[in-house]
Write a protein that binds this DNA or RNA. Structure first.
Lengths: 331, 331
DNA sequence: CTGTTAGCGCTTTCAT
DNA sequence: ATGAAAGCGCTAACAG
């Protein structure tokens, strides 16, 4: 079932079938109609691999993430796939598991499948691994991580905006002792969030109390442990912001364990807005990082690069937004 | 950068390079070594699309699911991809959004990419759409949905086992008034669960009180609404089992809203064991449907079909297991 | 406007 | 054990 049979049936050459398939303007409408008829009758569709072989374009994008099982990612994947499928591209996914060896393997797979571009969102990205992509001239979009120039496009997340909003929200609720459960200091985005938080606090003329700045690991248990430490403080906070929702969920558990209630005794704000955030008891006030926006931006960046809109922007930025739910209340 | 350059560099024919690549036994070790050297020096790897074109095998599997954003699926996807990548296969994913038109589109995409097989797990699967797959002789594995014979392989989920365990657990905790929040009746697997629950109750010599059997939609809000109805009963249940975790989470919220506590006032059991289930307050006792097991079984079924182990089983079954956490307590 | 033909990169007879 | 050459299904010159 190939282009030949269609050609035979429509009584034209394979070239004409190909032209019709590709909507070439120089096929007489009448001829094109015959071809289309034959295609329909035979229920024919072109072999993408043959197409790739000759055109050099696979119409496949790669998407490398840390782990689809991490609740941050499904929305990103979904958004990216939707955008891709909508434009006739497929996507293949790679999970690195925060492991450089797996990352290298993912890149290799992408190269073997001759992807037209790859979007990468992993917490730490080794520039050396990206080099292969650059050398083979594969359009690459780095999400959140990486500096401009390291890849063909970089999509930056404006953490500060949402965090500023969160601090302002808490301040408006008369909180003055606001703690922050930070993420792992070796994670650039975690550092950025911490700095944005401190800046937010100090922009209100308040001094950040170092005792209220505790370190954690962006995981549930870590968040719980950090909260427990905070609770032991003689002069404990009236509100807590966490560097991500997972920590916030852990903190929530610790608060309940201690016999206190959210938001009655302590207000709590998360970060990311993973899908579980509105399922907590009470639903978590948090800062949303729009994964669909991230995904669409990445897709379009890649597409722009691919179609060589030389003028296409190489730097993008998406913003973050406070989502007020029920875990915050006036003191 | 093709097989030709490798051939030139190793001073052999492309045929020999190809043989070496495919570990053909009839290449003299010495020759093979030369070839491998050239490959390494050139950092060459074969073009999968060319390979597909000649061999007819793409080394791609399709995976069609309802929606990666539904917390049930990320683990399944992850398991399937891990198994695939481990064997040098890629996977492309399709989300149907519970929509037959999208399902048709997914199947079309899979066909166009010449997948070697497809695994399908969507709540309702129209046999008519599967027909195309069958006709084109694409190995197909149906997970949970579908009857044997409709596809090349069917993987059945033994809902009853875990549900029986759950009922037994509750009974052992001296619960006698146990309610069930059922899923949408048009969903076969939801019906199966409901029936298994009723059978479980009656196997303990207890009669199922119809008032304790409420219908819902497998969503949070629905679960909450169902629970609210249950709470209004003059003789209310001491324990509740839900047809899925999402409903259970909704129920949990409703119980708190009503000023009651879990498990102190009411015991609660979910179903599925989505990753959020152990993050609820208190962590939810639930029945686990192992997605990794499901994924691996599907992958191996497909692989078996592909390599034509004609004798390979066409029917598989995986079981479900009670996971006791903290939402259940003796009455 | 349409057909002929030469590859794209690989595997696989068929010779040798 | 190795090479020559045909061909997988398609596109893109080039002719006409």
């Amino acid at each position: 079932m190939s282009i030949k049979e269609v050609a035979r049936r429509a009584k034209v050459s394979t070239a004409t079938v190909s032209r019709t398939l590709n909507n070439s303007p120089d096929v007489r409408p009448h001829t094109a109609e015959k071809v289309r008829q034959a295609i329909a009758e035979l229920n024919y569709y072109p072999n993408t691999h043959a197409r790739t072989l000759v055109s050099g374009r696979s119409r496949i994008f790669g998407l490398i993430i840390s782990d689809i099982t991490n609740p941050f990612f499904p929305d990103l994947v979904r958004g990216f796939e939707d955008a891709a499928v909508h434009r006739g591209q497929e996507v293949i996914i790679g999970n690195t598991d925060y492991n450089p060896r797996r990352m290298a393997h993912c890149i290799r797979r992408m190269l073997e499948r001759k992807v037209d571009g790859v979007a990468i969102m992993t917490s730490e990205t080794d520039p050396a691994l990206l080099e292969e992509l650059v050398r083979r001239k594969v359009p690459t979009a780095l999400l959140d991580t990486g500096k401009a120039g390291e890849a063909s496009a970089v999509i930056h997340i404006d953490y500060a905006h949402g965090i500023q909003q969160a601090v302002k929200h808490l301040m408006a609720l008369n909180h003055r002792r606001i703690a922050f459960i930070a993420g792992p200091p070796e994670l650039p985005s975690a550092r950025t969030r911490r700095e944005a938080f401190v800046a937010g606090i100090e922009s209100h003329g308040t001094k950040m109390d170092p005792a209220l700045l505790v370190e954690s690991d962006h995981k549930i248990e870590g968040g719980a442990a950090a909260m427990t430490r905070l609770l032991k403080l003689s002069h404990r906070p009236t509100a807590v912001m966490a560097s991500n929702d997972l920590s916030a969920i852990g903190a929530l558990g610790a608060i309940y364990e201690a016999g206190l209630r959210v938001p009655d005794d302590i207000s709590l704000v998360g970060f990311d807005d993973i899908s579980f955030a509105h399922l907590t008891q009470p639903p978590l006030t948090t800062v949303r990082v729009s994964r669909s926006q991230l995904a669409e931006t990445a897709f379009h960046a890649l597409e722009g690069l691919l179609h060589g809109h030389g003028e296409s922007r190489r730097d993008y930025s998406i913003t973050t937004q406070l989502v007020v739910r029920s875990s915050t209340r006036a003191v």
